[in-house]
Write a protein that binds this DNA or RNA. Structure first.
Length: 322
DNA sequence: CAGGCGTGGGA
DNA sequence: TTCCCAAGCCT
């Protein structure tokens, strides 16, 4: 990063101006989201943060509403079989998150009196909660001064301060130090600073085709000043077609739709004779068959799902954990 | 620590 | 059509 740039920003009047500009922009440009409501419980914030991991807001909204109505408190979810969490996760993706959220609810019910813990350390110990999520919940649900660093914030810092098109592939110690150096001292202001930088990354300072003309801090942007140089590396795309991942997703879609355990042969047989599988399961089953995977790969996918706790054997068939 | 882990919409 | 990627976590 540009140490000179960071030093110039930190501890100067310039930094206070930056905080002010961002706060003003956030107050008028921020999206209205249910988990930002003052009425939203810490549990609602935690659920939103986990759902938002690697998942766009628009897809999270309906599932979050369903979850919070169904399980307004962690204790309610804790009483359910973990498979119910997975079933109601729907097609959000990364269903292990549902499993971990359920496990977190159990820990909260049993060890925290049913209340979401309010410290970074306690949050971090919950399943599925890493550095980012712990900081985000501590800040946004409990008003704490936390150095929140997510992909949006990393990108904004990379451009605004370091003059780079994109941050490095993985989070570095230097980035954490930079993020800390930019934090307002005031607690309330620090919370809105975290939220506003994240929102700027999500709405304006986007990965592709950023809307610099709408940026409230474009005059301070090191990347813009440098002539918007291109990224210095090319992110490696994730393979999808033909992967175990794709097959696992197809199997999970079947299990979510099935009302009874699905026999192994059903996963291999054409979708025609599925009399003993619930109607709702035939569509995802047809999609699975269309993948036309090798038996060995199917075996690997099913075993992987069982190993991960996303499915279990019952009556010789596979089902969501009951 | 590099790689595995879902999904669907937009460029 | 293909590729990219969206508030990461865990091993």
């Amino acid at each position: 990063m540009s140490l000179a740039g960071a030093a110039e920003l930190a501890g100067t009047r310039h930094l206070a101006d930056l905080h002010r500009s961002m706060q003003r922009w956030f107050s008028e440009a921020a999206r209205v989201l249910p988990w930002r409501s003052p009425d939203c419980s810490p549990w609602g914030v935690l659920v939103s943060e986990v759902m938002l991991q690697q998942t766009p807001v628009v897809r999270v909204l309906p599932v979050w509403e369903d979850w919070l109505q169904r399980w307004p408190h962690p204790a309610g979810l804790a009483k359910e079989p973990s498979g119910e969490a997975v079933r109601h996760w729907g097609r959000l993706g990364y269903p292990r998150r549902a499993l971990r959220l359920h496990a977190a609810a159990v820990v909260i019910a049993e060890e925290h009196g049913g209340k979401v813990p309010d410290t970074h350390a306690a949050l971090l110990s919950l399943p599925g909660v890493g550095e980012y999520t712990a900081a985000a919940v501590a800040a946004f649900a409990f008003g704490r001064r936390e150095t929140v660093v997510d992909t949006n914030i990393r990108r904004v810092h990379a451009r605004l301060v370091s003059g780079l098109a994109l941050p490095s592939p993985s989070l570095t110690a230097a980035e954490m130090r930079l993020a800390e150096s930019l934090m307002p001292d005031d607690v309330a202001l620090s919370v809105s600073w975290n939220a506003s930088v994240m929102e700027l990354g999500a709405l304006v300072c986007t990965a592709r085709s950023p809307k610099c003309s709408e940026c409230p801090v474009r005059e301070s942007c090191a990347w813009r000043a440098a002539g918007e140089p291109p990224p210095t590396y090319t992110p490696k795309g994730q393979a999808w077609h033909g992967t175990d991942r794709q097959l696992r997703g197809a199997v999970m879609a079947v299990l979510r739709a099935a009302e009874s355990p699905v026999a192994r042969e059903i996963f291999e047989r054409p979708a025609a004779d599925l009399g003993f599988v619930a109607d709702g399961a035939t569509v995802p089953l047809a999609a699975l068959h269309r993948l036309n995977s090798a038996p060995e790969q199917l075996e690997r996918a099913l075993e992987g799902l069982v190993r991960d706790g996303l499915a279990e054997m019952h009556d010789g068939g596979l089902r969501l954990p009951a």
